[in-house]
Design a protein around this nucleic acid. Structure first.
Lengths: 106, 106
DNA sequence: TGAACATTTGAGCAACTGTTCAATTGTTCA
DNA sequence: TGAACAATTGAACAGTTGCTCAAATGTTCA
């Protein structure tokens, strides 16, 4: 006769190296400053100085955060003269923020 | 004649109290343990002991994390005898994880 | 080239986070 | 009621994070 299943035997987990990658990605959205940067970049390509002025934080702080966002391919950039213009790398950012907004609005 | 616009005047930010709420929500997804819990609960209602055994962590650690997930309405629960069974509160969790998976798979 | 502007970088530090451990609370059943 | 099982709680600690400050790097233009 079949052994009684324990309650978790049917659960399929992802490969264990996927969770840290997911967590690193979500961590980037888990900070007010980075969210404000991303939300601004949803609307318009902006340079470091623009973002610093708009969000009222230092250019250094902006640059540090953009570096993190860049490393995870959430933003892309192009240099134009002295300025470096940043924009969203793809539309996943907007989608993620929109879904999260839906959740908190309930 | 119209003043030359600065580069950020057209940007519409959300109410400033929304970003901390969004950040708090995303922070919950920014941890490997919580992601594994959420991913398991996507598939099946589970109690604390099930999760602890499945993920090979202490029941205390599971309980601490479930408390955080509960406070943000990501999971719901029902007591059945000695056990407390947890499940996802809505489908936003699955959607968010799926979009994030899409991003890291690129 | 040199001055001015824009951005990046690295070190240091205060604040926050996730875990462990021990104690407590809740539930069942003999 | 009391023993056993399940879950929760709070304090404490190590590790991480985001900012500031100062210095360095890039770029333009006179």
């Amino acid at each position: 006769m079949p052994q009684p299943d324990n309650n978790t035997s049917s659960i399929k987990m992802l490969n264990e190296d996927v969770y840290p990658k997911l967590a690193s990605l979500f961590k980037l959205f888990g900070d007010t400053t980075r969210l404000r940067i991303l939300h601004a970049l949803e609307q318009k390509e902006l340079c470091v100085g623009d973002l610093a002025a708009l969000l009222d934080i230092t250019e250094s702080a902006v640059s540090h955060q953009l570096k993190a966002l860049k490393l995870s391919n959430l933003v892309k950039y192009r240099r134009d003269g002295q300025s470096v213009f940043y924009s969203l790398a793809d539309d996943h950012v907007k989608i993620l923020i929109d879904i999260a907004l839906e959740h908190i609005m309930e």
